[in-house]
């Protein structure tokens, strides 16, 4: 068990190195001197020269990369071209917003979808099962941004139940905050129901065909005891991995939902930085989101033994 955890932790190191190197070298593909790219069109030659020295641009490419990595590790992601703010605190602020929405949505989606998928599997072949699968396929086919726009149109514009623009954080004013995140959270819950239901259903079906389940039934346990005591633990493991992937993927794709609902999150920051060619912010956000993605997957994998007794032993 300890070896499994340590091994998994060490696996993440080369991934992170390659991810950071890929981002560093990709930024160099932008035509022009990296320092002037970083500073934007309005920079004076003196500023460019100063940044060139600071970035260690005189050295070879690998040494430039190491200098850059050193800055990143000390928390220096540079400054935004458009606002002059330091990139790291800016990202952390915006990340808090995105994380609130994404985590809330994933928790609710899992709480609804896992029991629904297992129920469908339990009643396999029935019309309830058929209906659940059809509904999840339908939900799987609706793009998040369109669903968001439709929710905005119906609940925000026509019914006027929720504010259509702006954001108040939950810490500032909880009631107001809930009103502002309701529609984006609802959108993400509906988008993620499909894959989780399908996965929970498929893995429960797979487990319920195994011999130990037949054995448990033969022992005279009731159907619900068989499900909860024996099938659930094993069936949940793959679903748990999927939920982790979804959590990380949503953080990467949150830009779209945040654009629909004009929410000042990390994704919106990234997209606006791309429009403004604010490269220090673009680079910071991409790096930040990929590292979060790697870490989320790492944590999910490390918690995996809790759900899969086979690995725990």
């Amino acid at each position: 068990m300890g070896r499994f955890l340590l091994g998994r932790l060490l696996q993440a190191v080369p991934t992170l190195i390659i991810v950071s190197a890929a981002i560093f070298f990709a930024m160099r593909l932008i035509p022009g001197d990296p320092a002037s790219v970083m500073l934007g069109d309005l920079a004076t030659p003196e500023q460019v020269e100063a940044l060139r020295r600071e970035m260690g641009l005189s050295g070879s490419l690998p040494s430039q990369y190491l200098t850059w990595l050193g800055h990143i590790f000390s928390g220096d992601f540079g400054k935004s071209i458009s606002s002059g703010e330091h990139v790291l605190p800016l990202m952390l602020d915006r990340f808090a917003v995105s994380a609130t929405i994404v985590v809330t949505a994933v928790v609710f989606a899992a709480l609804i979808a896992v029991p629904a998928g297992m129920f469908a599997a339990w009643k396999q072949g029935s019309f309830a099962d058929y209906g659940t699968v059809a509904l999840s396929t339908l939900l799987l086919s609706i793009p998040s941004f369109w669903l968001g726009l439709m929710i905005l149109l119906v609940f925000g514009m026509w019914l006027e139940w929720f504010p259509v623009i702006g954001y108040v954080s939950l810490g500032e004013n909880f009631r107001q905050g809930v009103l502002f995140i309701f529609m984006p959270v609802l959108t993400l819950i509906m988008v993620e129901l499909g894959p989780i239901v399908r996965m929970a259903r498929a893995s429960t079906i797979e487990v319920s065909r195994l011999e130990y389940i037949t054995h448990a039934r033969a022992k005279g346990l009731s159907e619900s005891e068989v499900m909860w005591r024996h099938a659930f633990r094993n069936a949940f493991a793959p679903t748990w991995t999927l939920i982790g992937l979804i959590l990380g993927g949503l953080l990467g794709g949150i830009a779209i939902t945040e654009t629909v609902f004009t929410i000042p999150g990390l994704g919106r920051l990234l997209v606006e930085a791309i429009y403004a060619r604010d490269y220090p912010v673009v680079q910071g956000c991409i790096l930040f989101i990929s590292v979060i993605y790697v870490i989320v997957n790492l944590i999910v994998d490390m918690l995996y033994p809790l759900f899969d007794p086979k690995i725990a032993q």
Binding site: P14, I23, M27, L29, G249, G252, I274, I289, S290
Partner: peptide, 22 residues
């Protein structure tokens, strides 16, 4: 496989977004 896994380490849409940004 190391190269491939590093590509997989980015959320798909983010990778595409990054390439489009550049």
């Amino acid at each position: 496989m190391i190269l491939n896994d590093s590509l997989l380490a980015f959320p798909g849409l983010l990778l595409a977004l990054f390439i489009m940004a550049i």
